[in-house]
Write a protein that binds this DNA or RNA. Structure first.
Length: 232
DNA sequence: TAGGCCATCTGGTCCT
DNA sequence: AGGACCAGATGGCCTA
């Protein structure tokens, strides 16, 4: 994905320009802030490195090319009033922190997406290469876990006989079920479970089989999808 | 073209 | 103070 063009060409860049970091005509440097400037420049580079362009961005008005044109950023004016300089420095520090925060946030979201991908990997889909959206992944995982749990419960009950005394490894009736903490507690009680729960029977903890909210069209009851590796 | 999905930026809040 | 988390805003891409 390329986001680079965007990063350099975005409002962020505009801000940098506004702050004089990329402006075409600033004046000779400010001794007191030279180090910070270097530091910040490094941070910018770092951010650019850390944030490879996710996707192309069309730049109305030709945004994004400003930096490329200039070779060296001219310095600031020598005679800037002290107050102005400190204000500017504060601005730049603030900006620098923002960029770092952006970087962290981006990484955080990448981690989140990686976890979501890992979750997708263990969920059966039909066709197999279909990609669930984020919300679908979460809802589907919820239902899937519920189905597996039901399967275990029924299997345990069958093994123990009619009294069904204790399905030890299975959540007891009344114990917190996924459904109870889903959708703000609006989830309906678990319907009678199917022995084929693991193959995603229509039985669902949080909605009817035809409820697109919980059984996205692509995954609505149909041909039993393959069991995920870990379900086998 | 509208709507859905997504990535990113941003400012606020809470926590360490 | 700095980082993590969150939600709103923005804009791009894709599909019906």
């Amino acid at each position: 994905m390329l986001v680079k063009a965007e990063v350099l060409a975005t409002p962020a860049e505009d801000e940098l320009l506004l702050l004089g970091l990329g402006s075409p005509a600033p004046s000779p440097s400010l001794p007191s802030s030279a180090e910070e400037e270097e530091e910040e420049e490094e941070e910018e580079e770092e951010e650019l490195r850390a944030a490879p362009p996710a996707r192309p961005v069309d730049a109305p008005g030709g945004r994004g090319l400003r930096r490329a044109e200039g070779k060296r950023r001219p310095g600031r004016s020598r005679g800037a009033p002290r107050a102005a300089r400190t204000a500017e420095t504060a601005q730049r520090i603030k900006r620098s922190r923002r960029l770092k925060a952006n970087n962290r946030e981006r990484n955080r979201m990448h981690n989140l997406n990686a976890a979501l991908d890992a979750l997708r990997d263990v969920l059966p889909t039909f066709p197999e290469d279909a990609k669930l959206t984020k919300i679908e992944t979460l809802r589907f995982a919820h239902n899937y876990i519920w189905a597996l749990t039901e399967t275990l419960r029924l299997a345990g009950a069958a093994r123990l006989g009619p009294d069904g005394a204790a399905a030890a490894a299975v959540p007891a009736e009344g114990s917190p079920s996924p459904a109870s903490s889903w959708s703000g507690g609006s989830a309906s009680p678990a319907p009678s479970a199917s022995p084929y729960a693991c193959t995603l029977s229509p039985a669902s903890p949080a909605g009817s089989a035809s409820d697109p909210e919980h059984w996205p069209g692509r995954f609505a009851p149909g041909p039993p999808p393959p069991l995920p590796r870990r379900c086998l």
